[in-house]
Computed example of a mutant assay.
Amino acid sequence: MKALLLSIWRYRHFIVSSIKAEFRGRFARSKLGALWMILNPLAQATIFALVLSEVMGARLPNVDNKAAYAIYLMAGTAAWGLFSEIMNRCTTVFIDYANTLKKIAFPRLCLPLIVGGSALLNHLLLLVAIAVVFLFFGHYPNAAWLVLPLGIAMIVMFAFGLGILLGLMNVFSRDIGQVLAIVLQLWFWFTPIVYTADTLPKQYSHVLALNPMAPIVKIYQGAMLYGKLPDWHSLITPFLLAAGLFLFSFWIFRRASADLVDAL
């Protein structure tokens, strides 16, 4: 593990420059550039506020704001967006960069770090954009937002751990990437993002207890809408799972990396 971390440190400039290149490439030939990070959620939130909030807003407890549902939904989708982007990109990163792996010698773990760093940068800009959108609703950031880095850290660990494992499996069996798309769709709808946990039928309540993303998403929703800190007890299991997967993925990656290029 120490040798792996040292090799990553030696290639830190390569990782940072690659993340910058990915970010610039995302807005290449776009006149508005990164402004789209604000315009897209603003347009989305307007639709939610005008259409969905009027219908669903009354179902959110202890909130009088008419834009409550839009805020709740944007908070949840922000958390899920970071998770799904890291998962999807880590699952295909070794296949997408197969030619680079064969031609250039560098620590293979740099690739998931690059795509993960790019996803994290996009997420941070999105949070800034969401904060701007909330100002139009008269909803201002509060001290509870300071807990968001905890949610980000848990999502990154969980998504990295699971994504790297699936990425390695996807090299040897390309069906993994196809199955993941279906699983993520089901997982999204079994996570309280579009609905609240209270509205879920009781016979499905056990699903939330088994869903590690539910309490993590709730960190965002509680802080950004209600201005509340999370239930720390509910985060123990997701944190241990995320940290365990994160460390286990590094161990598996170190053992499988020798055969990675040959399988590609």
Score class of each variant (00 low, 15 high):
M154L: 15
G163I: 01
F23G: 08
I8M: 03
D198C: 00
Y72Q: 07
L42R: 04
L150K: 02
A45N: 10
P149T: 01
S17H: 12
M154W: 04
Q221S: 04
G163R: 06
V147P: 05
V261A: 11
L32Q: 03
A43Y: 02
R89M: 13
R10W: 10
D262Y: 04
L264C: 11
Q221K: 01
K103Q: 15
L264E: 15
D96H: 12
L135Y: 03
V207A: 06
V63L: 14
G25I: 09
A209M: 12
T77I: 14
T46E: 10
K102W: 04
F190T: 07
L184A: 00
Q178T: 10
K202E: 13
H123F: 15
Q203S: 13
Q203E: 15
L42Q: 05
H13F: 13
H233D: 13
Y69D: 07
F94A: 01
G33H: 00
F106Q: 04
E22H: 09
V194G: 10
K102R: 15
S53E: 03
A98R: 14
K202P: 04
A70F: 03
F134W: 14
M224D: 08
C110G: 05
V261K: 07
I236L: 15
T100C: 04
Y140F: 14
P107L: 09
K31N: 12
L186K: 01
Y226W: 12
S18P: 02
L121V: 15
I216W: 06
F158G: 01
W36Q: 07
P149M: 07
I182T: 09
N65T: 03
A197N: 06
A28S: 09
E22M: 12
S118F: 15
S7Q: 12
A68C: 05
V132W: 02
A129P: 04
L52T: 10
W232R: 11
A223Y: 04
